[in-house]
């Protein structure tokens, strides 16, 4: 008797509407090399390079033509880009913008400039600062030596300028996602003068450096793939890739998670990516099971 291999048929997901345009403004280049980074960003990873200002402007224009609701900048570390201020202004001219940062490069001058844009813009300008623990020991084992204090120094400067960034926590330390973990973060942030602390928790994706962090056991299991029967209409709506696309210096992608995944690239421009996608990547399983959205 011959064993019949089950055939995996991945679900297809339509782009319902382009609500969110992600821009990988500094590619995979970062001033940190966090051990959980799902796209293995670092000072030496130029797999995706810095975007040109003209590329950012073109993607914004294409998105506006689609009726985009909001923009997100990420990297790498967005504030490494020498033209980041021009990019921020280009986005805010058309809609709300959120910037994902580790906060380390935010000096007093930049914090004041960001606060000025926050107040002057008719649209929301929001910052998300990544921090992975409430103590140096907890955070630095993930994000690198002495990063806890450097990140919080950047947060302090934003707060001193009158801004209120969202602190983003990846739940590599699983207990941080629970009620007690949240309370610890609220206490920490209030002790740093944030009287309206804002938090976002994100599940880790078992790809990139996060997969290697756990030796050979950190990746997805063969069963961790989505099937058509997994998705009803509500589940489809909840997946961020039903309403977002990502543009990097190398082209367009379904979402921020998959830019280093083979076969995920959709084309050269945003317009090339305005089509359905196949949810055939293990990371899609995390988005579905954990209800992950990279949006705030």
């Amino acid at each position: 008797m011959t064993a019949i291999e089950p055939v995996h048929t991945p679900p297809t997901l339509d782009l319902q509407h382009l609500d969110t345009l992600w821009l990988q403004v500094t590619g995979t280049l970062c001033n940190l090399a966090c051990l959980h980074c799902f796209i293995s960003c670092g000072p030496k990873n130029d797999s995706h390079e810095f975007m040109e200002l003209s590329q950012v402007q073109e993607a914004i224009n294409d998105a506006v033509a689609q009726g985009v609701k909001e923009f997100y900048f990420t990297g790498g570390e967005p504030f490494m880009h020498p033209e980041i201020r021009e990019m921020i202004d280009a986005a805010l001219a058309h809609g709300p913008l959120t910037i994902l940062t580790n906060g380390i490069l935010i000096d007093d001058d930049l914090a004041r400039w960001l606060a000025d844009r926050f107040h002057q813009s008719r649209y929301s300008l929001d910052l998300r600062v990544s921090l992975d623990g409430t103590t140096p020991a907890e955070n630095d084992v993930i994000r690198g030596r002495n990063t806890f204090e450097k990140i919080l120094a950047g947060v302090d400067r934003l707060v001193a300028a009158g801004l209120n960034p969202v602190i983003t926590v990846t739940t590599c330390h699983a207990e941080l996602g629970g009620a007690e973990g949240r309370a610890r973060f609220f206490d920490l942030l209030q002790s740093r003068g944030m009287d309206k602390p804002r938090l976002k928790f994100l599940s880790p994706f078992k790809i990139g450096r996060e997969e290697r962090r756990h030796g050979g056991d950190g990746g997805y299991q063969p069963y961790e793939l989505l099937r058509e029967s997994d998705l009803d209409d509500d589940a489809r709506d909840a997946l961020q890739c039903s309403s977002c696309r990502m543009v990097t210096s190398k082209g367009s992608y379904p979402c921020p998670i998959l830019i280093e995944v083979e076969d995920a690239r959709m084309g050269d421009t945003l317009d090339d990516a305005l089509k359905p996608i196949e949810l055939n990547h293990p990371a899609c399983y995390t988005c579905f099971v954990e209800g992950v959205t990279c949006r705030t």
Binding site: A65, G67, K69, G95
Partner: peptide, 24 residues
């Protein structure tokens, strides 16, 4: 118009998005 529990805040709705909702 597209989702009963969607939050339409002033600061997070671009003109382009609102025009899309009206068009659609």
């Amino acid at each position: 118009p597209r989702r009963v529990n969607e939050f339409l805040w002033e600061s997070t709705c671009s003109d382009a998005f609102l025009a899309h909702l009206l068009d659609a």
